[in-house]
């Protein structure tokens, strides 16, 4: 025991987490999030490697290719910090081990991060906030901003700590079905909520001038509502699913829907 062990302080780790929020700033087609990753880990490099040659080597190895969902990158960072700390204290952790852990974790984590954050959490919080905002309430935007950012930063910091504390054992947890469970749970929740959103927020109603029974004055829309309210919205949504599967661009579909709306109104269908 000749030398005192160099460790990353909580302050260092917080500095890394804070910088990690800018992961995608220099996103590029060549090595994707490499610049942001290197930018984030700089405080740790400064702490762990006083020697300039070691610093150069560390910067270079953290400018390698990297890409994942920006929030789910946090546990990867935690594990990497643990590995770098070991290395700085003389353990035999080579470059390929560190790069291997990064590459090994980024794929599965992107696979769970995209559905959880972009397709479950954001639509749900967004819909809740938007429904308030559509009544003109400032609470909507504030709720969205505060809720999202508190949740996001807490996730980034705590999953990084988790990765740091567990080190490479976390990779076993991840492959042990935890990610699979989260993805399944998010899909169930997401599909349920989207079903509800389609019912409430895809609005189409047929003109009251279109009657199914001239004598009673029953409108077609009333007939459809008697079957299931929101049925037309459902059909339009499923039609969009089908078109997207046929590789039609979402932008073309959006334009098409505006055209349908305008032409339909002109000829008095809507």
């Amino acid at each position: 025991m000749t030398q005192e062990r160099i460790v990353l302080t909580k302050k260092d780790r917080r500095a890394v987490a804070t910088r990690h929020q800018f992961l995608q700033a220099s996103w590029n087609y060549e090595r994707m999030q490499n610049g942001g990753w290197c930018f984030a880990i700089i405080p740790a490099i400064k702490r762990l490697y006083p020697n300039k040659d070691d610093q150069i080597a560390a910067l270079k190895r953290h400018l390698e290719f990297y890409n994942t969902q920006p929030y789910c990158s946090a546990p990867v960072m935690g594990v990497t910090l643990a590995l770098e700390e070991e290395r700085a204290n003389g353990a035999n952790v080579d470059d390929s081990a560190i790069q291997g852990v990064k590459i090994g974790m980024m794929g599965p984590l992107a696979g769970v991060g995209d559905p959880v954050f972009w397709f479950t959490a954001r639509p749900i919080i967004g819909a809740l906030a938007a429904s308030l905002a559509m009544d003109g309430s400032i609470v909507g935007p504030i709720l969205f901003f505060v809720l999202w950012n508190v949740m996001r930063y807490a996730f980034i910091f705590y999953t990084q700590e988790m990765g740091y504390n567990l080190g490479t054992t976390i990779t076993k947890d991840l492959s042990g079905g935890l990610l699979g469970k989260i993805t399944t749970g998010a899909s169930v929740l997401g599909m349920f909520i989207i079903g509800g959103l389609v019912q409430r927020w895809v609005n189409i109603s047929i003109s009251a001038d279109i009657l199914v029974n001239k004598d009673s004055g029953a409108t077609l829309q009333a007939q459809i509502d008697a079957l299931t309210p929101g049925l037309l919205g459902l059909l339009v949504t499923l039609g969009c699913c089908w078109l997207l599967k046929k590789k039609v661009s979402p932008i073309v579909i959006i334009l098409g829907l505006f055209v349908v709306g305008i032409v339909g109104t002109l000829v008095n269908i809507f």
Binding site: V202, I204, C240, F258, G261
Partner: peptide, 15 residues
């Protein structure tokens, strides 16, 4: 008509 179209456009994101 644009309002009607706007009412339907949400469907694309959901899809």
């Amino acid at each position: 008509g644009m309002a009607v179209g706007g009412g339907m456009v949400a469907a694309v994101g959901y899809a």
